[in-house]
Design a protein around this nucleic acid. Sequence first.
DNA 1: TATTGTTATACTCTATAACTATA
DNA 2: TATAGTTATAGAGTATAACAATA
Lengths: 161, 161
Amino acid sequence: MPRPSAPSPRNGTAAPCVEEVDTSFLETLIGYNARRAALAVIDVFLERMAPYGLRPVDFSVLSLVAHNPGITSRQLCATLGILPPNLVGMVNALEQRELLARKPHPRDGRAMGLHLTPGGQKLVRDAEKTAAALEAEVGARLTAAELQTLLRLLKKVYGSD
Amino acid sequence: MPRPSAPSPRNGTAAPCVEEVDTSFLETLIGYNARRAALAVIDVFLERMAPYGLRPVDFSVLSLVAHNPGITSRQLCATLGILPPNLVGMVNALEQRELLARKPHPRDGRAMGLHLTPGGQKLVRDAEKTAAALEAEVGARLTAAELQTLLRLLKKVYGSD
DNA sequence: TATTGTTATACTCTATAACTATA
DNA sequence: TATAGTTATAGAGTATAACAATA
């Protein structure tokens, strides 16, 4: 590890080196901090969801279908910021695992409504419990009030207020 | 929220459909909200940095080199969570644009210290001003106190406290 | 004509293995 | 032996264009 100042006296034109990285400017940026926080939480999320064979995006899809039976691909895409071509494979995979099923939309022949199978419902129940537990765990670094504040401010930032 | 009740009276075994998507569960999760906030801010960041020819990661690299002259690739990678093989191309590109330069590390023959050129210094000054302005703009949805709180809580979440 | 779901495809980002030169 | 930087490459994630069926 480099040690510039004190020890080496003769330092005429020598290139400096860095002991401890100064990140103070980046740390003033919302984007930088929000991204780091998201990655930290999602890392843990990824581990805890592995036993269910779910990535974060799979969990999001299944959870939305659970709370919105009959939701269409288009609605899922708009909600999660996924592009339609990229959702197709995910839904196919979840359907092959018999976690969800496509059913004809009652009033739009073009669309397919998505529904959980009984197995999918059980999986989502368990996975949501795990997610809530993880949330409490990560939230242990914060007080309950801080957690509420954090969620409120984040929603303000991205406009869901 | 599913609303099977009011509009369609005869609804014997028909599959339900969704009027307005209920995201209330996902919105209780820190990861979901932090990711959405990060993406929203980074989207604007991407637009504003385009005139400088910088992606967010390029900005982060240049800003860190500016505030840490002589920083090594290894230190950059550790700070930004980038893998060494993926940093090489970025540094090469920035070096070819004559924004930064590799110089031999004063005490470790294996390492190269990174330094901004005069042109790089000017670009970073301008880009950081733009970033700060953007921050104030996004922060306009929040009060100054809320912004400080948000940054503090995010740092608590990812452990930089 | 516009929209839903889909295919094919390209591009970017991220991850792994292995090599070199120095320590 | 371990580490810094690099190369090559594989994989995941994200993007656009175009098509068939339906509105």
